[in-house]
């Protein structure tokens, strides 16, 4: 794997992640982990008018998973639930600005999977 997955932006967001820590007020939280690496993440979402008003995360993991969570949470703020649920691996690559390759794909998508889980459980509870 070439070193360019460790772009400046990835390292900087890994060191200083955005939206890290538990929200004081949230509507739904969701925990997910990656059994291969042992990365884990908890996503907190505050919903207003079917949109993501606030979102944050807690957890531990490699630079790709942590910077990925930081960038994803920035990206989805203000997004509608239905749009946010559509975020797939292609979109994650766009948000990261790189292709982490097959060995690190699971690191990159962890936060998106957790977010989808959170939104799913919010919708179930608010049907």
């Amino acid at each position: 794997m070439p070193l360019d997955i460790y772009a400046e932006e990835i390292i900087s967001q890994y060191e200083h992640p955005h939206n890290k820590g538990k929200l004081t007020k949230y509507d739904v939280e969701f925990h997910d982990e990656n059994p291969i690496c042992g990365d884990d993440i908890t996503i907190y979402v505050k919903i207003e008018k079917e949109k993501i008003a606030q979102v944050s995360f807690e957890g531990q993991g490699c630079a790709i998973s942590q910077a990925g969570a930081s960038m994803l949470t920035d990206f989805v703020k203000g997004m509608s639930i239905s749009d946010a649920k559509k975020i797939d691996y292609e979109k994650v690559k766009e948000i990261l600005g790189l292709d982490p390759g097959p060995a690190r794909m699971h690191c990159a998508v962890l936060s998106a999977k957790a977010l989808a889980g959170a939104l799913e459980s919010y919708m179930k509870a608010h049907k």
């Binding site: 794997m1 070439p2 070193l3 460790y6 291969i36 690496c37 993991g61 490699c62 630079a63």
Partner: peptide
């Protein structure tokens, strides 16, 4: 530094080590 990142940098130098 997470062990996966250590492995990934090693990999770029042709060195195989395991993380997990």
């Amino acid at each position: 530094i997470h062990p996966h990142d250590v492995s990934a940098v090693f990999d770029s130098f042709g060195i195989a080590i395991r993380a997990g």
